[in-house]
Amino acid sequence: MTFWRKVFAITWKDVLSEFRAREIITSVLVFTILVIIIFNFAFGERVEMVAVAPGMLWVTFTFAGVLSLNRSFILEKEDGCFEGLLVSPASRDVIYTGKMLASLVFLLVIEAIALPVFAFLFNLTVLTPEITAITLLATIGFVACGTLFSALATNTKARELVLPILFLPVVVPVIIGAVNASELALSGKSWGDMTGWLGILAAFDVVFLTVAYLVFDYVIEE
């Protein structure tokens, strides 16, 4: 499969570059933990943690997503490398999928570190199969539309600003779905109670992977 070989070449290149520079994961992780701690000051111990934890968690992950997705194409643009991709015989679908998978890896790594920290600080059981599934589905949704908007934003005059302005309203269903499903999961509900939410997350993933795949070409051409 030459499609996947090229996709993984792009993903691997991003992962390797990130492994060397630790630019995205380190800074976004520090940011994530800072936000979690600041939330603690905002809410204190006045409220029951299970009630606010899902909201805190997903607000944090959403902002972490914006930050790390923003870097994805900015790094590519810095040395004009993106043109190197454009002149190569890698099709636009390959570029989209490769960049998306790289962002998925980064965000999942950040979440995998942030979740235990979260569990530790707020004394919650978050390392469950339910939370893992929700996180995976929601993160796929984030990167599916985030990669598209990130590529778009790098070609505008205010790239750091354009991504959140586009990204946040569009991912509203992901945030609602992830928060509510996490709430159910944290209060010990079964899979059956969450099917509606998981369904919405999955639907978002499918729709955005398909649409972004179809329109990505229009975002990067000149």
Partner: peptide, 19 residues
């Protein structure tokens, strides 16, 4: 197909600095 036949050198080296 056309891209396979072309090699491009421009002002930018198209090289990733961290690699």
């Amino acid at each position: 197909k056309a891209r396979r036949l072309i090699g491009v050198v421009s002002h930018h080296p198209f090289l990733y600095a961290n690699l």
